[in-house]
Design a protein around this nucleic acid. Structure first.
Lengths: 126, 126
DNA sequence: CGGCATCCCTTATGATACTG
DNA sequence: CAGTATCATAAGGGATGCCG
């Protein structure tokens, strides 16, 4: 990456594309699912139990979207009852690493941001 | 960043915090505004003209949120008519760089992701 | 010029029930 | 066990009008 012009997004289309990725990572369940799968391959209900508060519906949706984008693989074992194994693909792992990099930055500056917010809100109410 | 355990988010709270940041960057106008301001300090309507399709309302909201988090500075010149200058803070610039890093990765893998989507959608309709 | 309030619509998300 | 369908609600965002 050329850090002399770090912020240039060359076209409207590219900007939308980047936003799309950030929005996906920023939705309610994508990051928890990706983080969970980064540790090991898991079955549907294993993932579900590992993630506090996720509904069956939202887990299905989140997994489908990630699968569609090639971030996770889905393998059905035709047993009875059926078992479906989910795993992060190399692409998905790379995305997760990128997201975590940004996440680490965010956490590192957490208190700084909180102080700004507190100051801002104080001035508002004054 | 410790790349031996790149995906570990230590707590539920931290995970939500990271998601919050990603969601903010992933909303409709934050990235365009940040990218625009990364080039130079600008006034309200300058920014508005620079960003195709943004409404006055959404520009105001986006700027307020960024200001609240300490990502941009807001300076009012008490002239008539009033002029308000916005600029990226060092914190905001750093965030933008982080976002662009992830963005560059996303763009680099754009076609790969598109191929996955096309294949997935083809199988669905078959 | 810059900003806020209001109304409305679309989409995302969630709860629940049902199925191979 | 894994997944779909249906319905309800919350949040994001756009259009418009008024204000200092």
């Amino acid at each position: 990456m050329d850090m002399t012009t770090p912020l240039i997004v060359q076209s409207e289309r590219q900007c939308m594309r980047v936003i799309e990725t950030l929005a996906r990572l920023g939705d309610r369940w994508t990051l928890p699912v990706v983080v969970t799968l980064s540790e090991e391959t898991m079955r549907f209900n294993q993932i579900r139990r590992a993630i506090e508060g996720i509904s069956q519906q939202m887990l299905t949706r989140t997994l489908r979207t990630l699968e569609r984008d090639g971030m996770i693989s889905r393998v059905v074992h035709p047993t009875t009852p059926p078992q479906v194994e989910y795993a992060l693909t190399p692409l998905g792992l790379a995305l997760a690493e990128q997201a975590m990099r940004l996440g680490q930055w965010a956490l590192a500056h957490e208190s700084e941001i909180d102080e700004h917010r507190a100051r801002f809100d104080r001035q508002r109410n004054a």
